[in-house]
């Protein structure tokens, strides 16, 4: 990467270039459908998921219930729609926590350097030394299972990720000419960070954001699957998989459907991330 001399133009034409990218378009379409499904579920679902009609339990997919019914006689399509709400909310807020705390920390460390930087890196070492899943399980076990605690548990591990990305991005910008010029003009470090650093690392953060969003959905599903995420009667995809497990033999569709929902959503987000990074730097397709 050769630093251009003038300040790079931020996101001009970015959207139109992104829209020409196949990964981005597919990913965006998938994600938009999932998000729309979640939004619609606030106003309308085919059936009420809070009403249990045990007599209708475990009906295979049919005309009335396109995806069948679960072990309480609830409509699976409605459950998937409401479940999307939960997955998106948990992952999105967890990303928000990670960005909200991690980005300022990373920018601060890059701007100040020295002891602050060192402290941040050691904090990162500490958090990364705990397997995220294990710690999330501990946190939810201590503070009780539930969507809020799942958000916190996942969010905490997003903090060092965003801190690291924004620090690296900011560090590469500080020695550049347009920043040096601003400093010479007497601008403070905070102002420079807000005016120049943040806009220039926004795309980087966006890519990381979609990755963490996707990971958050997987993590939430895992936590709910072991009973530590969203609690019944709140429908959740991971929880549905847990309930399906012992009924695999009798009704495999109960496990297949929520699994597909997770995969499609995660896939959509990852494709968006790929699309954006391709658009930013088409030469380098280095993201794993």
């Amino acid at each position: 990467m050769n630093p251009p001399l003038s300040e790079p133009e931020v996101s001009a034409g970015f959207l139109s270039r992104a829209l020409a990218n196949r990964s981005f378009v597919i990913g965006f379409t998938i994600t938009a459908i999932v998000a729309a499904m979640a939004l619609v579920s606030f106003f309308w679902t085919p059936y009420d998921v809070t009403r249990l009609i045990v007599a209708d339990r475990m009906q295979p997919p049919s005309f009335e219930h396109p995806l069948g019914t679960d072990h309480f006689g609830r409509d699976m399509l409605s459950m998937i729609m409401v479940g999307a709400r939960n997955s998106i909310a948990v992952a999105l807020v967890a990303v928000g926590i990670g960005m909200g705390i991690g980005v300022p920390l990373g920018c601060w460390a890059a701007a100040r350097g020295g002891i602050v930087d060192e402290a941040l890196m050691r904090f990162n070492d500490l958090v990364f030394a705990f397997p995220a899943l294990l710690s999330a399980i501990m946190i939810t076990a201590i503070f009780g299972p539930g969507a809020i605690n799942a958000i916190i548990a996942i969010g905490i591990f997003n903090i060092p990720v965003f801190a690291r990305v924004s620090r690296a991005g900011a560090l590469s910008l500080w020695p550049r000419e347009f920043i040096l010029a601003s400093r010479a003009a007497g601008k403070g470090k905070v102002l420079i960070t807000v005016e120049h650093i943040l806009p220039n690392i926004a795309n980087l953060l966006l890519v990381q954001g979609t990755i963490q969003f996707a990971l958050g959905i997987l993590a939430e599903a895992g936590l709910s699957y072991v009973g530590l995420g969203a609690q019944p009667p709140m429908p959740s995809w991971g929880r549905m998989l847990f309930d399906a497990q012992t009924r695999m033999v009798v009704a495999p569709y109960l496990a297949i459907i929520p699994g597909m929902a997770i995969i499609v959503t995660v896939l959509g987000l990852n494709l968006i991330g790929d699309g954006i990074s391709d658009t930013l730097d088409p030469k380098l397709r280095r993201r794993p």
Partner: peptide, 22 residues
């Protein structure tokens, strides 16, 4: 855990709203 969800649904029908706490 299963019975609780069914009971919560049955009691809601008569106007008793239960918050489930696992």
């Amino acid at each position: 855990r299963d019975g609780g969800q069914i009971i919560a649904s049955q009691l809601r029908d008569v106007g008793i709203d239960l918050e489930i706490i696992p």
